[in-house]
């Protein structure tokens, strides 16, 4: 009996694969697609305005609220600006950093450098953000101490603090894929470029950058999406500044359907973003 089943599975490769994958696939469908669907479903329900109970009746009111109130358009734009800034700054820092780690540093030191890049990930998210909070205190923070002798002023809490905080938090997610990409880059290709007359700057622009571009895009998926969804850092470093995550957080206890409608905005933006960079091959480098 068992033998004949074995024989059957041996001959029917697709059945075998389906049986093997059914559990993880089912899990993925339930967790990811199910969650997304539940989110969408919730966003078209009503609530009892007094008790905040969800009433399962169809309405588009949540979407009209989101799209007619200019505040939510503004907060979307602000969130996008933060996510884009964080991604750009991370890229600008991570590219030379990864290049140094992968191509210039002694191979024996590379594991140490990778570990160093990872150190921020070892500490708790909250500890790190609170540490930045103490740095940003307008009166007594470290930044004020650092900048005031130069006649500057600490930016205090707000958008800039949020961008700096998020950049710090997500930088490793940008460095690591680029590092992996640059390490795979054959050194002969760099030699070839120099051999053909290109100075290092040109080699970097025309050879290193285009070849590692998909890994930069892969890193950007992390920094961009993590920034789009963050609300805790914004609460701690943002002062009065808010992002989409905060809107969701503020509303989901009192008006879950509205919060669900708002949280579809970053979902849609991420889908567009992923579709946009799919062609670069970034998704193969995640």
């Amino acid at each position: 009996m068992i033998k004949s089943a074995q024989h059957f599975l041996n001959r029917h490769v697709k059945t075998r694969a389906a049986l093997l994958l059914s559990l993880p696939l089912g899990w993925m469908i339930v967790i990811y697609l199910g969650a997304l669907f539940a989110l969408f479903l919730t966003s078209i329900w009503k609530i009892d305005t007094f008790t905040s109970d969800v009433i399962r009746e169809f309405t588009l009111e949540n979407f009209t609220d989101v799209f007619t109130d200019r505040a939510y358009f503004n907060v979307t734009i602000r969130t996008l600006m933060v996510a884009i800034s964080v991604t750009l700054i991370c890229a600008v820092i991570a590219i030379p950093m990864a290049f140094y780690m992968a191509r210039i540093a002694k191979p024996s030191n590379r594991p140490i450098l990778v570990a160093l890049v990872l150190t921020p990930l070892w500490a708790s998210y909250l500890v790190k953000v609170y540490a930045w909070r103490t740095m940003f205190y307008p009166e007594s923070g470290f930044l004020q101490w650092l900048i005031s002798p130069l006649g500057g002023k600490s930016p205090g809490f707000g958008m800039i603090a949020v961008i700096i905080g998020l950049t710090y938090l997500w930088l490793p997610y940008m460095v690591l894929p680029i590092y992996a990409g640059m390490e795979k880059l054959p050194s002969s290709v760099l030699d070839a470029s120099a051999d053909l007359g290109a100075k290092p700057g040109r080699t970097f622009r025309e050879v290193v950058m285009p070849i590692t571009w998909p890994t930069i895009m892969a890193g950007s998926v992390f920094t961009f999406s993590l920034s789009m969804g963050d609300y805790i850092t914004v609460q701690i470093l943002g002062g009065t500044f808010q992002m989409l995550g905060n809107v969701v957080y503020q509303n989901f206890s009192l008006n879950l359907p509205f919060a669900a409608a708002v949280s579809l905005i970053p979902v849609i933006i991420m889908m567009i973003y992923l579709a946009g960079i799919r062609k670069t091959g970034a998704l193969n480098n995640l």
Binding site: I31, Y32, G34, A35, L36, A38, L39, S225, L226, M228, G229, D230, Y231, G245, V248, F252, A259, A260, S263, P266, V267, M270
Partner: peptide, 10 residues
């Protein structure tokens, strides 16, 4: 992070 939040929410 975003996905986690959405999942929590869901």
């Amino acid at each position: 992070m975003r996905v986690t939040n959405l999942r929590k929410l869901a």
